[in-house]
Simulated assay, not measured.
Amino acid sequence: MKITIKRDDAFEIYELEDGAYTLLEALEKIKHEIDNTLSFSSGCRSSVCGSCAMRVNEKEVLACSYKVEDGDTVEPLNNMPIIRDLVVDMDKSYEMNVKAKAWLNKLNHEATLDHEAEKINEVQSDCILCGSCYSSCPVYAVNGEFLGPFSLTRVWKYVGDKREADAKEKIDIIQTNGVWDCTLCNNCTVVCPQNISSKADIEKLRIRSSMFGYSDPNFGNFGGGFDSGFGFDGSPTF
């Protein structure tokens, strides 16, 4: 079994005995038995911590759950500075949460969450901070100020939370380098190990934005009327 790993600007090929390995097990075998200079991140080994996210054959995976195959090519995540080999610096992607104010900002102390309200944003709470959505995002690749799918999903979580007393403030913030910059390509949803659809969350944020008077600046207001970019049922009109 041969595995190709990107290291700096070069690719190195490692050969292992055939076997049923996870990618993380294969990387550890290479490090302990072949090349102890190989660097990668790992943590829980249970697809919970997200620290072992990387790309295999140009698709984001968790190394602890991906079953390695002969001929696989392994690379670090995209759109983030490489520290060494398969280890990347996630700080900038996390900083986008601060820009987006992706937390409960003004708490409505009179609001309480019942079971049904909790389930509305239950999926968004499952994010494991792996960064796969950022890595797969074509917009983030060309616009480093784009808030990105991870932060926008978190914004929707709190905009949709009835305990948030000022949802409009969050909507105001995401108008620049935010919801309208997304191409809705769905890459983020495809690679998310927790099956979170950031695309769907961004679409809901666009609908909420139109309710506050915003529209897609890329389309403008044809004929002098207000065009939110969405029909009355919330479906895109473009």
Rank of each mutant, 00 (worst) to 15 (best):
K2F: 07
K2M: 09
I3M: 01
I5C: 07
D8P: 09
I13T: 14
E17Y: 11
L24D: 08
A26G: 01
A26Q: 05
K29W: 15
I30Y: 08
K31A: 13
E33V: 11
E33D: 13
I34V: 14
N36R: 10
T37I: 10
S39L: 12
S39W: 13
S41A: 15
S41F: 07
G43A: 07
S46E: 13
S47D: 12
C52F: 05
M54I: 10
M54D: 08
M54N: 11
R55T: 08
V56C: 05
K59N: 11
A63S: 12
S65P: 07
Y66N: 00
K67C: 10
V68Q: 05
E69N: 14
D72G: 01
L77G: 02
N78W: 12
N79Y: 01
I82H: 09
D85I: 03
D85Q: 08
D91S: 14
Y94L: 14
Y94F: 15
E95A: 15
E95V: 07
N97W: 13
V98I: 14
K99S: 13
A102E: 00
W103G: 01
L104C: 03
K106M: 12
L107Y: 14
H109D: 13
E110I: 09
A111Y: 08
T112Q: 14
H115T: 10
E116H: 10
E116P: 08
A117P: 05
K119Y: 09
E122Q: 12
Q124M: 11
S125P: 02
D126L: 14
C127N: 03
C130G: 06
S132C: 15
S132I: 00
C133E: 05
Y134M: 10
S136K: 03
S136H: 03
P138C: 08
A141M: 08
V142W: 01
G144N: 12
G144Q: 15
G144L: 10
E145F: 11
F146L: 01
P149S: 00
F150T: 11
L152F: 00
R163Y: 04
R163L: 02
D166W: 03
A167I: 12
I171D: 02
I171N: 00
D172M: 00
I173C: 00
I173L: 09
I174H: 00
Q175P: 06
N177P: 01
V179H: 03
V179I: 15
W180Q: 01
C182R: 00
N187A: 12
V190F: 15
P193R: 02
Q194M: 15
I196T: 09
I196M: 09
I196C: 08
A200E: 13
E203Q: 13
E203H: 11
E203D: 13
K204I: 08
R208G: 02
S210I: 03
S210D: 04
F212L: 08
F212M: 07
G213W: 04
N218C: 09
N218H: 15
G220S: 04
N221R: 13
G223P: 04
G234M: 07
F238M: 15
